[in-house]
Design a protein around this nucleic acid. Sequence first.
DNA 1: GCTTCAGCTGAACGCCTGTTCATGTGAAAG
DNA 2: CTTTCACATGAACAGGCGTTCAGCTGAAGC
Lengths: 193, 193
Amino acid sequence: MNRRSAEASKQKITESARQVFADQGYAQASMRTIAREAGISVGGLYLYFRNKEELYLTLMQEWMDNLNGTTREALRKIDDPRESLRAFITITIDFTRGHREMIILQGRELGFTFGIDLKKQFFRERRQIITGIIRRGIDAGIFRQCDADEAARIIFNVLRGFVISMVIDEEALFSAGGCVDLVLNGLLRRNEG
Amino acid sequence: MNRRSAEASKQKITESARQVFADQGYAQASMRTIAREAGISVGGLYLYFRNKEELYLTLMQEWMDNLNGTTREALRKIDDPRESLRAFITITIDFTRGHREMIILQGRELGFTFGIDLKKQFFRERRQIITGIIRRGIDAGIFRQCDADEAARIIFNVLRGFVISMVIDEEALFSAGGCVDLVLNGLLRRNEG
DNA sequence: GCTTCAGCTGAACGCCTGTTCATGTGAAAG
DNA sequence: CTTTCACATGAACAGGCGTTCAGCTGAAGC
């Protein structure tokens, strides 16, 4: 019987949990399923995580850190608010496409209140980044005068909708480019020249 | 012991179920909770609905019919694509604000595949309405050339995000007016004149 | 009174869940 | 060989769920 290191086991558990939570949601995902996927006993899960909730919160924190880190890194090098916005939207959508598990953050786990404050803080930070970009654009005379906070919320919700669509409604998906285009240019025709 | 009519009992059950499903999601909502809210025995639920799934699907169908009916009724009287889009967005957001239970349609009930085709068909119809409005705008020279289908999807996803935000993130909500403004005008400054 | 009808009840059933903990096992050290 | 360490097991526990169905009850009809 070959034993893995504790670290390797913990890793395997989080990988499996990520997948199972993403596929089935918190309520439906059972510790037995996660254990089976991880190739470890159900009692073994509790050697690494206090309970199901803690396992879930650990994954949430992980994804929030990943996405925010990637976003900040990319935005650091961009000055033009148009490009900043493009980068923000593109990174978010690409990240989401490659990580279906992102649904963990947008999941509507009603009946479960834990982690909601953590999520809200994360969402707030995301919106503030967008607000900052929009304000920069307004100050630079590139974007028109508007309620930057609200515009940020609208953009934020497009991306929230994208995450949901990824999971339940793939026909509703759209491209980052198309989204940036609509957000920047709107639908109304512009005077040429 | 005063007995209600069957109709009244069924009504009470659906009202209670609507609330409980909306608050707790499908998985967490228990038939015992719904029964208690309805003031009827748990076994009594099964006199009217075959099972939990059928109860849920009944409610889904109801909301889809309501929203689509209201939308079509309003759009019938509008010619200007700008006003059509405004109406669509406004109705959806207002309806959502007044019916938190709308989350039933956007809920991510992973692990439960029933009703998904019904939902997709509903979503498809919604998007087609938007696409139609956008095409009309383009044909009339009011909207710029763009991929109408994709633009519709983007707008659809803003509204999808709104529903989710209603339930898990009220800070992220936005006004119908603000949304229409952004969708029509975009962020970029326009030449004055 | 008895019978029928309409609406209802809630304990029981079978199944599943999160969690615990007595116990197990291979490897290394002495 | 024995002891210790590190990692692990899975049956049992307590609780909850969706569903069933034997039985109940008030009202109306005869």
